[in-house]
Design a protein around this nucleic acid. Structure first.
Length: 492
RNA sequence: CGGGGCGUAGCGUAGCCCGGUUAUCGCGCCUGCUUUGGGAGCAGGAGGUCGCAAGUUCGAAUCUUGCCGCCCCGACCA
């Protein structure tokens, strides 16, 4: 019973923490603001990573790796970017410790070891990468340069939250260089599509594709494209970003190329990334009061088999039958676990795998052997049904597909119900407070108005949706003329 | 850095206001038996610098002061 989780309605934050800690994904550590990702959580990340990595490679990208440390002089070259991250950097100033003469058994920073130049632990890698690209790019023949890196980064946030905002997190960051603005913009949009496809097809999480307002734009970008997801508490979550960087970094790092006419020009850049935050999004998008609900396409365990038996004789008969089933299901490409551990009883296992979000559970006992059936329980609806053992792999595959689309549809319905139009200020505030979710409203396009709305309501412009419908209207706050609605929400 | 709260076994906690035997209870853990189709039952057992330091006192988990750490709310943010 110690593993019971707090209900979502009672305490949303506690519910979220319980899901992650008791579901076995991650835990806090001794390090401030950092977490340890446990094997089950990491297996989930690996599955996500594998899918994304393949999508990147299918769109012509290659992986590489750049240093963790960024010398301060490089870091500060692109001013806007440096300023944007200045307040959340971890900095290496020394390289050696020594015994503390005043306190036996303790160490102190050796003042003699002060670095001539401080090293910034990357909060993002544009600086170190563009400094490297300078040496790689001379001609249009070297372009486009399409590189991705899987790495960890550090952002010294004031307040942290498992997966959503930790001091250190894992991510991928793509950094590309192009000979024309159009090509770079096309790349930015292409990667946004990749992210959206991943979120919807694999995470079963509907997202809105859009462009950030100038206030919310990535420091150093010309345009920031994003995918925005909606969580079950009605708050929005930025799930991925793709930036068109213009020539800002090329100019800051002096990266020029000769075009076909032998004219020198700065290259055009993009960067794009998603992080372990996606795990937080996944957790919040689908889970319920019984625990995690993981989409079959990403679940580390898709099917768990639990034997129910009295005595060794029954156990052996079940083992024998299950070994054939496991072989059959594995052959069909299903990630399966047979939990025949005798340390815990069936009821405990049922609850445990529900907590862990395993999409399908198969129960098998002496009774089932006699009838040539298994009991199949699906995590999303908690429905239980007997399935014939004959052709089990086919029926399980179609069940997994069904679960995948069911949880997508559920999230999709929820989101559709939580995008609401507001046409005046009172309505806007009331919707934010009572209905939550995305509010579609007119905005006069000014940064001050956006800032003011944020101050008054804590809502920010999540994005201006791509291919947004143009419509005459009046700004929700100022009444100034507006040409389109944008999406507001309170966000993580 | 501002406002609030908390630190007692691996986890969650009672006791603190009003100082007094051997620090409470639940989960978990260990041993044994019985169990096993929705988080098992019984019996026995192990496990504690009561966050740290100083002070008051015959006596401190409890009172005082200082420090440290954590959580929540705000500013910041993928």
């Amino acid at each position: 019973m110690s593993k019971e989780i707090v209900s979502r309605k009672e305490d949303y934050s506690q519910w979220y923490n319980d899901l992650i800690i008791k579901g076995g994904l991650a835990d806090y550590t001794a390090v401030r603001g950092c977490m340890v990702i446990k094997p089950y959580g990491f297996a989930l990340w690996e599955n996500m990573r594998d899918v994304l990595d393949k999508m990147f490679k299918d769109t012509g990208h290659q992986n590489a790796y750049f240093p963790l440390f960024v010398p301060k002089s490089l870091f500060e070259k692109e001013e806007e970017n440096a300023e944007g991250f200045a307040k959340e950097c971890a900095i290496v100033t020394h390289y050696r410790l020594k015994l503390n003469p005043e306190k036996k058994g303790s160490l102190m920073v050796d003042p003699e070891s002060k670095l001539e130049e401080e090293l910034i632990i990357r909060p993002t890698s544009e600086a170190i990468i563009w400094n490297t690209y300078k040496g790689w790019i001379q001609s249009y023949r070297d372009l486009p340069l399409l590189i991705n890196q899987w790495a960890n980064v550090v952002r010294w946030e004031m307040r942290t939250r498992l997966f959503l905002r930790t001091a250190e997190f894992l991510w991928q960051e793509g950094h590309t260089a192009h000979s024309t603005a159009d090509e770079a913009i096309a790349e930015t949009k292409q990667m946004l599509e990749v992210y959206a496809t991943f979120a919807e097809k694999y995470m079963a999480m509907p997202v809105i594709k859009g462009v950030k307002s100038p206030n919310e734009r990535f420091a150093g970008a010309v345009d920031t494209y994003c995918i925005e997801a909606l969580m079950q508490d009605g708050k929005a979550l930025q799930a991925g970003t793709s930036h068109f960087l213009g020539q800002n970094f090329a100019k800051a790092f002096d990266v020029k190329f000769s075009d076909r006419e032998n004219k020198l020009d700065y290259v055009w850049a993009t960067s794009w990334g998603v992080s372990t935050r996606l795990i937080g999004a996944l957790v919040m998008a689908h889970s319920d009061d019984d625990g995690l609900v993981l989409p079959p396409k990403l679940a580390p365990i898709q099917v768990v088999i639990i034997p129910i038996f009295k005595g060794d004789e029954q156990k052996m008969a079940i083992d024998e039958k299950v070994s054939h089933l496991v072989k059959e299901l594995k052959k069909a490409g299903i990630k399966i676990k047979y939990d025949d551990s005798e340390n815990s009883r069936p009821g405990w296992k049922f609850a445990e795998y529900e907590l862990k979000g395993v999409p399908v559970r198969i129960g098998i006992g002496a009774r089932d052997l006699a009838n040539n059936v298994v009991e199949v329980a699906r995590r999303d609806t908690k429905e239980k049904k007997n399935y014939s053992m004959d052709g089990l792999s086919e029926s399980i595959i179609s069940l997994l597909d069904d679960i995948q689309s069911n949880i997508y549809n559920k999230a999709s319905t929820f989101r559709a119900e939580h995008i609401t139009k507001a046409d005046n200020w009172n309505e806007f505030v009331q919707l934010l407070d009572e209905k939550t979710g995305f509010i579609s409203a007119h905005w006069d396009g000014s940064g001050e108005t956006e800032e003011k709305i944020k101050e008054l309501t804590k809502a920010t412009i999540r994005c201006i949706p791509i291919n947004n419908e143009q419509e005459e209207g009046k700004c929700i706050l100022t009444g100034n003329p507006s040409t389109q609605r944008v999406l507001f929400a309170r966000a993580y």
